[in-house]
Design a protein around this nucleic acid. Structure first.
Length: 324
DNA sequence: AATTGACGCAACCGCAATCGG
DNA sequence: GCCGATTGCGGTTGCGTCAAT
């Protein structure tokens, strides 16, 4: 029982492709096309699984592929689309000529996630971490905070700790706002006396986060990311080439193309589906027959960018959900 | 100089969707 | 409409490279 294997595993080579194998596959496909992947390796004289051949072709050998580094414009497009579409790499890659879903996925996982985190933005929700902290705080009643905060933060605690303790970037700005020490490696000397106890210097970072939570509960406006997020004093130590103007992103209007994509306010759930009020930059828009760009998704729904580049979600159940 | 760990990329795996007889 | 075969997709792993210790 079980799934039928895609090929005879025993007589199939695996691992890195050799230039000779690449040449055989490319030559065969140039002559015969890519009609039946199961038969291609046999006919091309390759001891490879058809699936492996297909991957090698689509991700590496195809002549229309770009192999160089991603440009900043491409990165911005990826982030923009990811904030709307989540991990739908094939849809995102379709908007980037010459890039494959694997390329986009790898680039996201190795570079862009870290860049966003380095800027204090959660790469899953595309919200500033401070905003997430505020949202968590707003869901907790004050007596619970010290006990629940750490658990609630678990989803991104490691990321924050990495940033705060290893790369030493980012959050001093927020601590300054709380009247705390100006660097993340200094213990809060004027921290709260009630809701958070400073138990152990080893875990002081967690304490600071908890302190932020307790302050957020007392004074929710302090953590409003729109009002308070400013990158003026926000060094991004290992991303100097990444000239992303986050301040302009949060101030509507001109600036980086990213500024039209990321979440603001408390309603955004980007990454979880195509349900949110979104705009994307015009440079990402192609045209369908009615002047809009269609992106057909796996579940059959269709995302359309109209002439104003406004996203619509068209599903079989719900024919037209204007997303604006 | 040797070791270790982080990083980036290619490739694999398994499930879901689609195709076609 | 059914069902097996094929293809597409996203998550994960393996491995080579390089910098830090």
């Amino acid at each position: 029982m079980g799934r039928i294997p895609c090929c005879e595993k025993d007589n199939v080579k695996r691992g890195q492709w050799t230039p000779e194998e690449d040449h055989k596959l490319s030559s065969y496909i140039a002559q015969h096309g890519t009609r039946n992947w199961r038969l291609i390796p046999k006919h091309a004289g390759l001891q490879r699984c058809g699936k492996s051949c297909r991957l090698r072709w689509t991700n590496y050998l195809r002549p229309d592929l770009k192999h160089g580094q991603f440009s900043e414009a491409e990165e911005q497009t990826i982030v923009t689309l990811h904030s709307v579409l989540g991990n739908r790499w094939s849809v995102i890659a379709a908007q980037l000529p010459g890039r494959t879903d694997n390329d986009v996925k790898n680039h996201w996982n190795t570079k862009l996630k870290k860049k966003l985190s380095g800027m204090g933005i959660d790469p899953v929700t595309h919200k500033p971490f401070s905003h997430l902290i505020s949202e968590i705080a707003n869901t907790l009643s004050p007596p619970q905070v010290p006990h629940l905060a750490e658990a609630a933060l678990g989803c991104f605690k490691d990321e924050m700790l990495h940033l705060l303790t290893k790369k030493r970037i980012g959050f001093q700005f927020q601590f300054q706002q709380f009247g705390m020490a100006s660097t993340a490696t200094t213990a809060p000397n004027n921290g709260p006396s009630t809701s958070v106890k400073h138990e152990d210097n080893k875990d002081e970072t967690i304490e600071k986060i908890k302190y932020g939570l307790s302050r957020a509960i007392k004074e929710p406006d302090m953590l409003n990311p729109i009002k308070n997020w400013d990158t003026t004093n926000f060094p991004v130590s290992d991303n100097r080439e990444f000239n992303y103007n986050f301040a302009s992103l949060l101030n509507e209007g001109e600036g980086s193309p990213w500024n039209q994509s990321l979440c603001s306010g408390s309603t955004c759930t980007a990454g979880g589906g195509l349900q949110q009020h979104k705009r994307i930059s015009n440079e990402n828009c192609g045209e369908n027959s009615e002047g809009g760009k269609e992106i057909v998704t796996r579940n059959g729904s269709t995302t359309v960018f109209n002439s104003d580049c406004v996203l619509w979600d068209i599903s079989s159940d719900d024919l037209m959900n204007p997303m604006v």
